[in-house]
């Protein structure tokens, strides 16, 4: 084991897990707001919920491509996704928004500034996600780190319903090791970088909790149409 670790920390060796994760990244999704609807908070929220639903389908098939995820029992796969789905959505928005100052790139055709967020009733959430974006921007988060961190967020979702705790721990360990190996090769100048990345996860969790609560209350209002998968996962977090 120590020998293997030493060997993996060399520029010659390709990081297999990170390479697989890069290859598993879902394609881009367009928001396509309905041009027939007049601009309103309901239109903005309908667009976001529809976008989230389509992204969720892609994120579930992405999860299946995380090395080791499909070896977990089906029940544990479900539990991890039911806990982490919003963290995954938010981390993707945050990464897309890195190059866009003070705006959230929900999709290439759906970029939201603070004013638009406020009129959709999403200002607090907008601010919280931007705080995360600023953290990652200041670290110059790389695509390799983003895909690995996203898989870690899923494996580390702290579901209370895990049946095979050891198997989930094994998945966390292999992803953690992949990140350590990547940083060892690409950021040897900053030995604390892995820790810094992991330390952004509490803010991601906090932001995700806020988002789920907010969309649950929108659901209860009943004014915004929501697709079944999005509703199913909102229910899972209540």
């Amino acid at each position: 084991e120590p020998h293997r670790k030493q060997a993996s920390c060399s520029a010659q060796e390709e990081n297999k897990v990170v390479t697989l994760l890069l290859g598993a990244e879902p394609e881009k999704v367009c928001a396509m707001p309905d041009p027939a609807l007049p601009d309103s908070d309901i239109k903005a929220l309908t667009t976001l919920c529809d976008l989230a639903d389509r992204e969720l389908v892609l994120n579930i098939s992405w999860a299946k491509h995380i090395p080791g995820f499909s070896s977990l029992g089906l029940s544990d796969q479900m539990s991890l996704l039911q806990s982490a789905w919003m963290e995954i959505l938010i981390l993707r928005v945050a990464f897309r928004s890195l190059l866009c100052e003070d705006k959230l790139v929900f999709a290439e055709d759906y970029i939201m500034d603070a004013e638009q967020a406020e009129s959709a009733g999403l200002l607090e959430l907008h601010k919280a996600i931007l705080q995360l974006v600023r953290r990652y921007r200041s670290m110059r988060l790389e695509r390799e780190e983003f895909v690995t961190l996203k898989a870690i967020a899923l494996a580390n979702s702290d579901s209370m319903h895990i049946e095979d705790v050891e198997a989930v721990q094994g998945l966390q360990d292999s992803l953690h090791e992949a990140l350590l190996d990547y940083e060892c090769v690409h950021h040897s100048e900053d030995p604390r970088r892995t820790g810094k990345l992991i330390m952004t996860l509490p803010l991601l969790r906090q932001t995700s909790t806020k988002a789920v609560r907010h969309f649950c209350s929108i659901k209860q209002d009943g004014r915004v149409p929501m697709h079944k998968l999005f509703l199913e996962l909102l229910d899972a977090n209540v």
Partner: peptide, 20 residues
């Protein structure tokens, strides 16, 4: 878990999962 039919179905649809 009974309630989570869509998630269950999407996870069961095979799409070349990768094992370690």
């Amino acid at each position: 878990k009974e309630k989570h039919k869509i998630l269950h179905r999407l996870l069961q649809n095979s799409s070349s999962p990768v094992d370690l």
